[in-house]
Each structure stands twice: as C-alpha cells, then as structure tokens.
Amino acid sequence: MRNRTIEFSILMFLAFLMLSTKTLRWGNDPIELEYPKNWPKPAYDFSNNPLTKQGIELGRRLFYDPILSRDSTVSCSNCHLSFTAFTHVDHALSHGIEDRIGTRNSPALMNLAWAKNFMWDGAINHLDFQALAPIAHPAEMDHSIEKVVQKIGLKTAYKARFFEAFGDSTITGERLLKAITQFELTLISANSKYDRMILGQEKFAEQEQNGYLLFQKNCASCHVEPLFTNHDFEKNGLPLDTSLNDFGRMKITKLSTDSLKFKVPTLRNIEFSYPYMHDGRFKKLREVVNHYAQTTALDRKIELLPNEKVDLVAFLLTLTDREFLFNPDFSFPRN
C-alpha cells in the first residue's frame, strides 16, 4: 500500500515535470517560406520576424478575430476572404463596422513577402504596419492598437498563444502586428496553370497562348512576371470619380506628377477578385480589358481586336490558383 502511494506521488511529480517542461517551450518550430525557384528573393526581412508555426497560427487567429474592431463585429477576413483571393467580392468599396463604407476597393492578399509598399497609394511602407490602418480607420474597424492590445490581454487563450509564439505572454503592439504579418507572409499563390506551364508541366490551349503573347506585348511592362506587378505606381487612365476625389499616390508624395497614379495590383487569381480597379468600378474582366483598349489617357495606346480581348481574358484565367484559394491552412481556424 505504501509502495503504491510512493509510486503515485512519483507519477504525479513526473506529470508536473512534463507539464512545466511544456510551458517552457516556445516558438521553436521555425518555418521557411517555400516559393518557386524562378521567383526573385522576398522583400520582407525575415531576420526581424522569423516565421514559426506558433507565430503563424497566432496571426491566423488574429486575422479571423473580430476583436480587432471597436464593437467586435468585423475581422480582417470580412474584407479579405480566403476563397476569393483574400478580397471582398461584390463590394466596390470596402466596408467596416456599422455598415460604414470606405473609399477604396479592398485589395486581394497574396505573395505579400515580395510587396514593398501597401495600399493603393503606398501609404504604408511595411507589411508589419499594414494592419494599423484598417484597425484605426473610422470606416473600417474604428479602433486603436492600444485598445486592441488591452482587449486581447484579457483573454488567457491569447496570452498562452503569445507565449508560444514569442516566449513571453505580454501582449505588445509589436508582437500583435508581427504575428499578423507572419500569417500574411504564408499566403503564397504559385500554383496556377500559368505556373505549371512555366515549369513545363502543362500546356496552354491555343487561345490562352495567344492571350499570353498579347499580355506580354501590352500589359507585362507594369504587370511584371512572375508576380504580375512591378510594385510601383502607374496611371490607369481612369477618369476621376468626383464623388471620391481620390488622386492616389499624390496624397502621399504631394507631387503633381503622381496625380491619379495607383499601385499596380497583381493579376493572380483575378478571376475571383472582382470588382476591379482602386474604386471597384468594373465588375467584369471584360470591362477592364475594354477600358485599357479604349483609353487615350495612357502614354502608350493598347490596341486589341475583339477576338484578341477574348484571348487575353482566357490567359488571365490561367492565373487562377485553386490550391491557394481553398488551402485549409489559410481559412477560418475551426479548432
């Protein structure tokens, strides 16, 4: 009987030791981003924010948690849905808490490790700082990072996750932003038909191939392969919408030469990221192509025959990456 008690207490002690060992563990599952060999090096400096399994998972939970908004109703995913290339379909302008409407179309999120500036006008200079803008914007989450940090600090589950991700359960603005960044950095889309064609694994149909040649001739100087953006700001030839009076990049640089310049968005998964342009004024890809073929406001005239427009759209549809759109690692965390 006594032996049994000794045995039991040793077992309990062992259990305690194992538990305490578990709580000492943090962020030691490093993750390396995987991307195609022919892609350039990412712009993001991972040495300041090394990816870990725990950091990414924390970021994912924050991304899907409406706690970030003032009345806890709207999360990042409201305007950035995984199944539609992390943008908000059917909404020309982004909308936030209490049905407030913003002034720009929410961008699709992917391949952000290569992006050098964020927002249609490049107002944000680093992926870490991007989340600050929607959190604070009155027409989006209408909150402040200070209050979000306070609110999250009251949740024990989050404290444990911050400990696992950063070795410290203290929640700071820096850690919160870096965790969201970690999740966003994993949103890589690199497995479309186009990518498989480049790797020689698949062949384009004749129409797609013709569309690809037209794309290279007319569009590729701004929508540079393989990321389909030059990460710069360009005139899109659209007339000013006087109900918004959005002059784009000029707001940031205050240079008149930057008037009506907007960031060149990626074209990947464009089939799913409608409506298009900075103010979401076009619902169909066909309208976008028609605009570029008609406009006289650009430095170079783009000339496309009706059948060429169809071919070009056929090529654009090869940029759809279903593995990315339906990746369970990117969707709402269910457990």
């Binding site: 944000i124 680093h126 803008a133 200070e146 700071t172 603005g173």
Partner: peptide, 23 residues
C-alpha cells in the same frame, strides 16, 4: 522608419505612429 514594427518606446501602442500613413 522602414524596418517594420518595433517594441519598447517605438511600440505602435505608444500613440506616436501614424496609422493612415506609415511614420
């Protein structure tokens, strides 16, 4: 400014970082 989120006195919760335009 261009090195991403920082902690301590530079933490964005200090209210000394613009949200609508990085800086």
């Amino acid at each position: 400014h261009i090195s991403g989120a920082m902690g301590g006195d530079l933490d964005p919760t200090k209210g000394m970082f613009w949200t609508w335009q990085s800086g």
